[in-house]
Design a protein around this nucleic acid. Structure first.
Lengths: 207, 207
DNA sequence: TTAATAGTGTCTGTTAGACACTATTGT
DNA sequence: ACAATAGTGTCTAACAGACACTATTAA
C-alpha cells in the first residue's frame, strides 16, 4: 500500500493550415529543463485526472474548451528516478476555429506539424504515434472527427480533414454520398459568405 | 504535488459453457467486507500497473497466463472516503481451456454469466458494461477474439464465440468464407479426435 | 468574363447475406 | 444404420470506387 505521484500528460491535436499539428511546450522543471515536451503536470489531491488535464490545457493555451479522451497509463518504475509516479495520458482535440493567443504561440506553447516534430524528451514521440493511431481508429469507428471542426462546417472542410488524418484521397461525389448516409451529419439552411466563389452549404453534427 | 494510492481493478472475461462470464471475488477488506466485487488491489511502488494486474489474477485464480489490456482510469475524489486513490481498470481474457482450480472456484473466486451478475459494490456494474463494449469493439476491429481460444481451435468454436460476444448469428458458409479472407487465421493439418462425429480441422492464429 | 469552388449521376466490380445438401467419423 | 457435426456453391442486393461536367458567387 504505497502512494505515488500521478501525472497527466496530453497530446493535443489541431488542424492548422490543413496540417495535423501537435501542441508542444517547454519544460520549466528539471530534468530536461527548457527542452521541448508535451503538456503535463501533477494531479492534485482535490481533482480528477480529467480536471487536471483541463487545468493544464488552460494554463498552456488559455482555452477552457477542449475535447479530452484517455489514451494510456504508463507506470514504469524507472521513468523518472526522483519519484515513483504514474503517467495518465490523454488525447486532446481543438477545432480549427480555436486560436491560441499569439504571444503564447510564439514564446512557450506552439503547434507543430506531426510530421516535423522536434526531438522530445522521454518516449514522447512514441506516445504521439500511439495517440495518432487512436485518432485514426476513432475517426473510422465513430465521430471523433467532429471535434476537429466547429459547429458549422462545409463538406469540403470535412473531406479535407478526413484526407489529412486518414492520409488518403476521396472522390468528392463518393464522399458526399458517404456523408448523406451518415445519420449524424445534417445539412443546415446556412451558407458560407464572403467567399470568392459559389458559397457552400453549412453542415452540422447531431449527436 | 500530492501522492495517491493507485489501485488496479480487472474485468476478467472467459467463455464457460458457451456463455460469456466475468470473474467475481469477495472483498476481504472494509468497506463492503465479504461483498461481491471485481478483482482489485493496490499497486506497489516496485511494480507497474500491469504487473499488479498479473499479481492480482494469480492470487485469485492461480493462473499466470492472461491477456490484459487497459480499459479506463477512474479518479473521482470521493470514491473511497478513506484514501485519495485512483483506479486503473483492465480487461483480462482467459481462453476456454484455462481452468481455475476447483476449490477456488467454489469458495472465493468464480465466473458468473455476464447476464446474471449479482449486485456489485461501487460502480462495478457500469465498468463491466464499459469493458464489454470495448471487447465488442476489439473483436470487430482486430484479433481480440484470439484470446478467448487456445492455440488450436475449430471453426465451429470460433463461430460460436463470435455469436456469443457479438450477440448475432452467422450462416456457417458465409462465416467460413469470411475467415478464409482473414489472413491471421490459418488451417493446420491437425484434426479433432475422440469426437462422436466427423472430426473438424483445427485452425490457428498467426499474428 | 473570369476565377474559384460547389454540387451532381452512372456504371462496374466486390462484398454480405440468404439459402440446403453431401461427407465423415464413432458407436 | 444411425447420430452428430463438418464441410461445400450460387444467387442477389447493397456498397465502394472510378469517372466529368454544370452551377453559383465575388471581383
Amino acid at each position: 500500500m504505497d502512494t505515488m505521484y500521478v501525472v497527466t500528460d496530453i497530446v493535443v491535436f489541431k488542424i492548422i493550415h490543413w496540417k495535423l499539428c501537435v501542441l508542444i511546450v517547454q519544460r520549466d522543471t528539471v530534468p530536461y529543463k527548457w527542452e521541448r515536451c508535451l503538456p503535463w503536470w501533477f494531479v492534485k489531491s482535490y481533482e480528477t485526472v480529467e480536471k487536471a488535464a483541463y487545468r493544464i490545457i488552460k494554463k498552456e493555451t488559455w482555452l477552457s474548451q477542449i475535447y479530452l479522451e484517455q489514451l494510456h497509463v504508463f507506470s514504469e518504475i524507472d521513468r523518472d528516478p526522483r519519484w515513483r509516479a504514474i503517467w495518465i495520458w490523454f488525447i486532446g482535440i481543438l477545432n480549427i476555429n480555436q486560436v491560441i493567443v499569439p504571444w503564447l504561440e510564439q514564446k512557450e506553447a506552439l503547434f507543430v506539424d506531426i510530421n516535423k516534430l522536434p526531438q522530445l524528451v522521454f518516449n514522447h514521440w512514441e506516445v504521439v504515434a500511439l495517440a495518432y493511431q487512436k485518432v485514426i481508429q476513432g475517426i473510422e469507428d465513430w465521430l471523433l472527427i467532429t471535434y476537429f471542426l466547429p459547429k458549422y462546417f462545409t463538406l469540403s472542410e470535412l473531406q479535407h480533414i478526413y484526407e489529412i488524418i486518414l492520409h488518403r484521397r476521396y472522390d468528392k461525389r463518393n464522399f458526399r454520398r458517404m456523408i448523406e448516409k451518415n445519420s449524424h451529419i445534417k445539412i443546415t439552411t446556412y451558407k458560407q459568405n464572403n467567399v470568392l466563389h459559389r458559397p457552400a452549404s453549412l453542415y452540422t453534427f447531431i449527436k
